[in-house]
Design a binder for these strands. Structure first.
Length: 724
DNA sequence: AATATTCCCGTTTTT
DNA sequence: CGGGAATATT
C-alpha cells in the first residue's frame, strides 16, 4: 500500500479525524470502510474520490458507484466542489450498466434501442409468458414469477442455467415461464432492471478483452452501501477490480435492510476473506446523535450475530432520554405524535427537522389525518409514485413506442388510450394475427394494408396506424418538444383538458413531467429523446423537485429513512408483528434485518427520539389487541423514559370537536374559495361527501394541494369580495 | 365496448 | 378498511 501526502495543500484532509484521514489517503489495494451511522462517510468518500482524481490519477480512471441516483448526484456535486471531477464516472450500478450496454450493444449482444421495462410492465410480460406455457395465473401468479425470475437473474442464473438446477415440479414450471419470458422480452427488444446487471456481469465473465479494457479504464473503484449489493453487483465490482485490485467498499452491515430484495450481507461481512490484505478502517465516531440516543441504538444492534463489531461513540451532549409511549389505539398514537410535533414547533423546531417513520405505508393514513386536523404541514415521501401515475405511464408508453415500436406492452397500453374504439376483442385478434405472421403487432398494423380480418374495427386501427406514423417523425426531436407533440397528436391533451374540472392532478403531473424534460434538455443540450427515456427510466426521483418543498414535517417508511437525519424523530408501531414485521401466514421473520431496520430509524435522530406503540391497532378492517415489540425490551432501560398517556378519549368525542361539517357546506362546490388557518387562501378542487367523512382537496395560493377531512379541518368559506 | 359490481388480498422498494 | 383486478352488466 502506498500513501501520498502531496495533495492540493492538504485541504482534502482538513478537519478530518484520524480514521477518516486514513481512509482518504489510502491509495492502492483493497479498502473496506466500515462506517457507522452519522460518521461522516460521505465526506470521506467524496474527499477520497477527489484525491484519487486530482492527485493520484486522472478522473476518468475513477468509478464511483452509489445505491441511488440521488446519492450519485450529491456525490458528483460534492466532488466537483472539491476540484476537478470532469470525466469521473459516478452513478448507480444500473445507470452504469445501462450506459455500457448502449455503447457496446453489439459486442455484448443486446438490441441497440432496447427498452427498459419497469416492474408493472414486467409483470404483464410474465403473465403473457405464463399463458404461453399453457399455465394459469391462478396457480402461477405474476408477482411470484416476478420474484423468482428477478432472484434468478440477481444470482446470474440464465433461464437455461436456472432450468438445470435441482428443482421441484413447481420450480420447474417457473423455469419454463422464465424461458418464455426471456423469449418475449427478446421479441420486444426489452430489458428489465436485472438484465442490465446480469448482461454486464456475464459479458465481463466471458469476454477477457472487454474485461481488460474496462479494468484499464476504471483503475480505482468505489462502491458505496456495499452491504446492499446483490450477487450480480458483487460480480461486476469484483470483475472490474480484478488485476489492479483497487476496490474500495464502504458501508455498514448494521444498516443492511434490503435482504428481501436479494442484497447479500455476506458481501460485506466476507470482504476481507475475498480480498486478502484488505485495509479496514472503522468510522465509529458519530457526529449526529446525542449520547443517549446513540447508546440505545448501539445496545439494540449488539443483539445481532451477523455483524462486524463496532463501538459507536459520540462527543455530543448526553441529551434527553429516548421516550417510549404506549397509546390506546392507532388513532391515539397518531394524535399523540401530532400534538407533540405541534409542541416542538411551538418551541422553535423547524417542521422540516421533524420526521415520523413507520414500517408499512398503510400507517401513514392515521398520521396524516391527525396532522391535518392540527394544521401541521407535512409531506409523505412517495418514492416512485410519480411514475406510477396513470397519466405519466400513458405518455410514457407513447414515447417508448415511437422509439421502439416492438415494445408491445406499451403499444397495447396506448392502442385504446384515449379510447378510440379499439376494444379487447380487436386487440386480441391483432395480437394473434401478429404472432401467426411472426411479426410485432406494431409492424403488422403499419405494414399491412388489408386489415379486413379485424372486421369493422379495421378502420379504427388504420387511423391508429396513421397516428403511429406521425409519432415516429418525432424521434429526432428534443425530449420536451416530442413530449408536447405526443400530448396533442395522441389526444391525451384533449382528454385531460376535458377532465380538468373534475381533477386537475393529472394535468399538473404532466406539466411536471414536461418541466422535468425541459430541465433535462437544459442540462444535456445534445441529449436525444432516447437519452431522456433512459434517464427517466432509471432515475425515479423526478420528485426530487419537491426537495425544495421545505418547511414541512416528513412522513416515510423506515426503509426510506436510510441516509437521512432529522432533529426530532418518531417511530410508530413498535408491536410484535409490525416491527418486527410478520406476514400473515408466514412464520419466518428475519429478526436481525428487522432489528437493523429499527436501528437505522433510531440513528436518524439528532436530538429527540420517541418510540410509540398502540395497544390496539386496526389492520385490514379489524381491530386487534397487540403485543409490545420485543425490541423495546432489548433497549437499555437507563436510556428510556416511559411516558404515560392520558386516559384515551373516546373516539366520538374527538370527532365532534369542530362541530362536524361547516354550516354552509351545501353551498360549497369546486371553485369555492376557502381559508385554512395555517395554509391561507385556497380554492376547492374536488369535494366528496361520504356518510361519515367528507373530503375536499384544495389548491392553495402558494401552489400546494392538500386534502382535508371536512369534519375535522378548520376550513371556512370566503366570499370573493372579502379577498380584495 | 364501456361501465358497474364483486372479489380478493394485504411488507419493505430502488433500479 | 380500501385499492386493484377480475367479472358481470348494460
Amino acid at each position: 500500500m502506498t500513501t501520498r501526502t502531496d495533495d492540493v495543500g492538504g485541504t482534502l484532509l482538513e478537519g478530518l479525524t484520524n480514521p477518516q484521514r486514513e481512509a482518504v489517503r489510502h491509495v492502492d489495494g483493497p479498502l473496506l470502510i466500515l462506517a457507522g451511522p452519522g460518521s461522516g462517510k460521505t465526506r470521506v468518500v467524496t474527499r477520497r474520490a477527489a484525491y484519487l482524481a486530482s492527485v493520484v490519477t486522472k478522473p476518468w480512471h475513477v468509478l464511483a458507484i452509489t445505491f441511488t441516483n440521488k446519492a450519485a448526484r450529491e456525490m458528483e456535486e460534492r466532488i466537483a466542489a472539491l476540484g476537478s471531477s470532469e470525466g469521473m464516472t459516478v452513478g448507480t450500478f444500473h445507470a452504469f450498466c445501462a450506459r455500457l450496454l448502449r455503447i457496446h450493444h453489439e459486442r455484448i449482444g443486446v438490441p441497440r434501442n432496447f427498452t427498459i421495462v419497469d416492474r408493472d410492465d414486467r409483470r404483464k410480460v410474465i403473465k403473457a409468458a405464463v399463458a404461453t406455457c399453457g399455465l394459469s395465473t391462478d396457480n402461477y401468479p405474476a408477482p411470484v414469477g416476478d420474484h423468482i425470475i428477478s432472484n434468478a437473474k440477481s444470482e446470474l442464473h440464465t433461464a437455461s442455467q436456472f432450468a438445470g438446477l435441482d428443482l421441484d415440479w413447481q420450480q420447474k414450471a417457473y423455469a419454463r415461464i422464465y424461458a418464455a419470458y426471456e423469449q418475449l422480452m427478446l421479441d420486444m427488444d426489452a430489458l428489465d432492471f436485472d438484465d442490465l446487471l446480469m448482461k454486464v456481469a456475464l459479458v465481463l465473465q466471458r469476454d477477457a478483452d472487454f474485461r481488460a479494457d474496462l479494468q484499464d479504464r476504471y483503475r480505482y473503484i468505489l462502491i458505496d452501501e456495499y452491504q446492499d449489493t446483490n450477487t450480480a453487483q458483487y460480480a461486476i465490482a469484483n470483475l472490474l477490480a480484478e488485476g489492479h485490485n483497487n476496490l474500495c467498499a464502504t458501508g455498514d452491515p448494521d444498516q443492511s435492510i434490503y435482504g428481501w430484495r436479494g442484497a447479500n450481507i455476506e458481501n460485506i461481512l466476507a470482504f476481507e476473506r475475498d480480498h486478502p490484505d484488505t485495509v479496514v478502517v472503522r468510522l465509529e465516531q458519530n457526529f449526529r446523535s446525542t449520547k443517549r440516543i446513540l447508546s440505545a441504538a448501539d445496545q439494540l444492534i449488539a443483539a445481532n450475530i451477523q455483524r462486524k463489531e463496532k463501538s459507536l461513540w459520540s462527543d455530543l451532549d448526553e441529551g434527553a432520554a429516548v421516550r417510549v409511549v404506549e397509546c390506546e389505539d392507532g388513532g391515539g398514537e397518531a394524535e399523540w405524535v401530532s400534538r407533540d410535533i405541534a409542541r416542538q414547533i411551538r418551541d422553535g423546531v423547524p417542521p422540516s427537522d421533524v420526521a415520523v417513520f413507520y414500517r408499512v405505508n398503510a400507517m401513514s393514513r392515521s398520521l396524516e389525518e391527525a396532522l391535518l386536523r392540527d394544521g401541521i404541514a407535512y409531506q409523505v415521501a412517495r418514492g416512485v409514485e410519480f411514475y406510477n401515475r396513470k397519466e405519466i405511464k400513458d405518455v410514457w408508453a407513447y414515447l417508448r413506442v415511437l422509439v421502439n415500436p416492438s415494445d408491445d406492452v406499451s403499444l397495447l397500453r396506448i392502442i385504446n388510450t384515449p379510447t378510440r374504439g379499439i376494444g379487447a376483442t380487436t386487440v386480441k385478434r391483432l395480437v394473434a394475427k401478429a404472432e401467426e405472421a411472426g411479426v410485432r403487432p406494431a409492424q403488422l398494423i403499419l405494414e399491412t394494408d388489408d386489415l379486413g380480418f379485424l372486421g369493422r374495427s379495421g378502420a379504427k386501427v388504420k387511423e391508429f396506424a396513421e397516428l403511429l406514423r406521425a409519432l415516429r417523425l418525432l424521434v429526432e426531436k428534443p425530449a420536451p418538444n416530442a413530449l408536447a407533440e405526443v400530448m396533442s397528436l395522441s389526444g391525451l391533451r384533449a382528454m385531460y383538458n376535458q377532465e380538468l374540472l373534475l381533477d386537475d392532478a393529472p394535468r399538473a403531473n404532466l406539466d411536471e413531467l414536461h418541466a422535468a424534460a425541459s430541465q433535462f434538455q437544459l442540462e444535456y443540450p445534445d441529449a436525444t429523446l432516447v437519452d431522456w427515456l433512459e434517464h427517466a427510466a432509471l432515475v425515479s426521483d423526478i420528485d426530487g423537485i419537491h426537495d425544495e418543498e421545505r418547511g414541512t414535517v416528513t412522513l416515510m417508511t423506515l426503509h426510506a429513512a436510510k441516509g437521512l437525519e432529522f432533529s426530532v424523530v418518531y417511530i410508530v408501531g413498535l408491536e410484535e408483528g409490525m416491527l418486527p414485521f410478520r406476514r400473515r401466514d408466514e412464520e419466518y421473520v428475519d429478526w436481525e434485518e428487522e432489528r437493523r431496520l429499527l436501528f437505522v430509524g433510531m440513528t436518524r435522530a439528532k436530538h429527540r427520539l420517541t418510540l410509540l406503540r398502540a395497544k390496539y391497532r386496526m389492520l385490514r378492517g379489524m381491530t386487534e389487541r397487540t403485543v409490545r415489540s420485543p425490541f423495546l425490551g432489548e433497549l437499555p432501560s437507563e436510556e428510556l423514559e416511559w411516558v404515560l398517556t392520558e386516559a384515551a378519549q373516546p373516539w366520538g368525542a374527538r370527532a365532534k370537536k369542530n362541530n362536524g361539517l361547516p354550516p354552509d357546506i351545501a353551498e360549497w362546490q369546486p371553485g369555492t374559495l376557502v381559508r385554512h388557518p395555517q395554509l391561507g387562501l385556497g380554492q376547492i378542487l374536488t369535494l366528496s361527501r361520504g356518510v361519515r367523512r367528507s373530503h375536499a382537496s384544495v389548491h392553495f395560493k402558494n401552489g400546494k394541494r392538500e386534502t382535508f377531512v371536512l369534519e375535522f379541518a378548520d376550513l371556512e368559506r370566503v366570499d370573493f369580495d372579502d379577498v380584495g
